[in-house]
Design a binder for these strands. Structure first.
Lengths: 231, 231
DNA sequence: AGTGTTTATCAGGCATCTCTCAGCAAACTC
DNA sequence: GAGTTTGCTGAGAGATGCCTGATAAACACT
């Protein structure tokens, strides 16, 4: 586990987004370097040899596509995860998911970013050890197929339910506060109340509890929730 | 599996096309070298000993046919997949596609390029291991004959339906987003909406579902589609 | 030129999902 | 044990995503 950390280059002109991504990715064990424009991105890609680039398609000096071309032209064959606003996406996505590349729309959730980065690294063989299957306790989650098995039984989940479950599973046996959950599972511009977390935990329990020998999501009153597995 | 990678020489004067092909082919496991004109192509063919050449017929300095002749004159017997604009007369090309050669019109789809390369390599014996038959679950696809059998029953598909089915089958048990599908199955300059994917999935299901014991194309709401086979 | 096929768009309908709220239950405080 | 806080969950409104039939244009093959 103490191998070289994965290097991520973050490129976005909005300082808020940059900080958000930097903090979150560092916390997830990545080594992060962030810049705010295309020129710096090209330079950083050349010098820093990142394993993956998080690249906003709308930059002040040039488009993310231009940046990608310049980087590739230098013979640097690094996968790119594009970030784009929801409305500019639909028509311009053509060609973006070629090779190891992928794209994600703003506003995104931090958990989703991490999941997608891992998916890309898995596909591009940068990481051999990573498995697309996440198994904790009685629950098995196949990320590629977006399928979940609880005690061997396939269970369907809505996108948000799925993300919440994945977040709790990846942080198994650790209490996560509702605030943390909201910050990681919901899109970063979510303006609602924390009650939504309670609702979704309830949805999860309704589907999970009938199939597990003991409750998997524990409430730590006044603190948060925890996915529990006796290992 | 750890055999020598297939070497592909890409020759096209448009940098966009070059990048697109390079990225896509590399991701599909090929070793790629790309040049932008006929002279460099001849040199690269001599030094690089490619297993196959992707050759644009309209190059700035000389025609793709001239390039082919020079290469063959040097005793290098490499198959060529010609790329030509749709309006360039097809009969001219047809006469020149000797041996294992083939041609494909621009704009092409990336999935089609890979399929054609594999078909040529199969025919020219460069690769013995490759099979022309793709069988996943209850569906069997014979690439050479362009035939599909669903539960032993022959079914006809339109070109786009066929390509979509092949793409889903080659990525069985993995959810593919509509964006990914569009990027790989449709021509690279397709400017339409993702709704077209929904339509074609609907067409496929109408033909497949009556002949399979259970639905083969699964919708993962908010994520994409998946060809499912219980293995 | 004529016919049938294929591609692509669109809109209506439908199912699901998201989020909020309110009443109830459980747990903690004193 | 009474009061207070915190969490649980059913109900429901509105939004979203997906499916499919209708349709028109492009194309292919006589």
């Amino acid at each position: 586990m103490a191998t070289e950390p994965i290097k991520v280059l973050v490129v976005d002109d909005e300082p808020n987004i940059r900080d958000l991504l930097t903090t979150s990715l560092k916390f997830n064990g990545f080594s992060v370097y962030a810049v705010g424009n295309g020129n710096d991105a090209v330079l950083a890609a050349e010098k820093g040899k990142p394993d993956i680039i998080l690249l906003d398609v709308m930059l002040p000096d040039q488009s993310g596509f231009a940046v990608t071309k310049k980087i590739r032209a230098m013979g640097i064959d690094v996968p790119v995860l594009f970030l784009s606003a929801r409305d500019e996406t639909e028509d311009k996505i053509t060609g973006l998911t070629v090779g190891g590349d992928d794209y994600i729309t703003k506003p995104f959730s931090l958990d989703e970013i991490v999941a997608r980065i891992n998916a890309i690294l898995r596909r591009t063989q940068k990481v051999e050890t990573e498995e697309s299957v996440l198994e904790v306790g009685e629950i098995l989650m196949n990320e590629d197929a977006h399928e979940v098995f609880v005690g061997g039984q396939a269970v369907e989940f809505s996108p948000t339910e799925y993300k919440l479950l994945r977040f709790l599973m990846t942080n198994a046996n650790r209490v996560m506060s509702k605030g943390q959950i909201l910050d990681h599972v919901w899109e970063y511009d979510f303006g609602g109340e924390m009650g939504i977390v309670e609702s979704y935990v309830s949805y999860l329990r309704k589907k999970l509890d009938p199939l597990t020998t003991e409750p998997v999501i524990i409430t730590k009153r006044g603190v948060g929730y925890m996915y529990k597995s006796s290992k």
